[in-house]
Nucleic acid binder design. Structure first.
Lengths: 144, 144
DNA sequence: ATATTTTTGTTGATATATCAACAACCTGAT
DNA sequence: ATCAGGTTGTTGATATATCAACAAAAATAT
């Protein structure tokens, strides 16, 4: 069998982990007390203010259970509040606190730079090729 | 800011997760009672029989602590045994049990097919382009 | 209007990731 | 021989992933 370390999927995992570590380290350096995943959820709530937790889960391809727990932490750490939905007794409506909003605004200045740094020295057409390739893989894996 | 869902790193995470789910589901379908990560560690021990846990951790870019716990489970589930190292009082030597060996042998027939299925309909030069791209990203992230 | 099914979110159990602190051991310098 | 510093593996705390079971509410069918 092909050496695992030469496979595409090995490299994929390695890249995700390395980028996550870089991202998290940068957050810490810049004084943020929030995880990559918490940032992702806050951001998704801002982009889709009326999404249910289930919809948020789909958008970030996480489990509903993970969303429940990440949101729990965001509320505990005062980045987010939630209220019962006016008409749907099972859903919630979310609102970023001032602290949450400020954090996102600051991070949205920084995050594009993280991406640029990570992608430095790469050709944009190669990035596009890779994205298309990954889309095919996702389709293949979902089909089977 | 660019919509997160269009970014390269979003696609990267999505692809890793989807492939992991596919892999894990296939394992279950074929009657294996082992996780992707456990398979990865077993395989690494076979490839590098004299590696220390720290070295294994580096090879699979996991934390030493994760390796301790995954190995603990592999031993508990009787895929692996370990003994103290003859000369180094702090290290261990590992040995797959017959059950472990059989599992790996069977999986090493299957896993290449998982990869082929996931990569179906993709051009090999695009795979190579993507791998090179990811290598650059890893270097960029480690440097900073 | 009632029964059935679906949707929505929570919880428990288990596996893994990450960070920090730690103990035991090893090595090298003095 | 001793001491300082590095290595190796473990443990605790916390965050997340995944699966399954579940309860409450909503939507649909009859």
């Amino acid at each position: 069998m092909q050496k695992i370390s030469n496979t595409f999927f090995y490299q994929l995992e390695k890249t995700v982990k390395t980028y996550r570590q870089y991202f998290q380290a940068q957050m810490k350096t810049h004084g943020f007390d929030i995880t990559l995943d918490q940032w992702l959820i806050l951001n998704t709530i801002l982009d889709y203010p009326n999404a249910s937790q289930t919809e948020i889960a789909e958008k970030v391809f996480k489990d509903k259970a993970s969303i429940t727990r990440i949101i729990e932490l965001l509320i505990k750490n005062e980045y987010l509040t939630r209220e019962g939905h006016p008409t749907h007794g099972r859903m919630f409506q979310f609102q970023l606190t001032p602290k949450g909003l400020k954090t996102i605004e600051q991070l949205n200045q920084l995050v594009p730079k993280f991406r640029e740094n990570a992608l430095a020295g790469t050709a944009s057409e190669n990035i596009e090729v890779s994205q298309s390739l990954m889309q095919i893989i996702v389709e293949n894996c979902k089909r089977e």
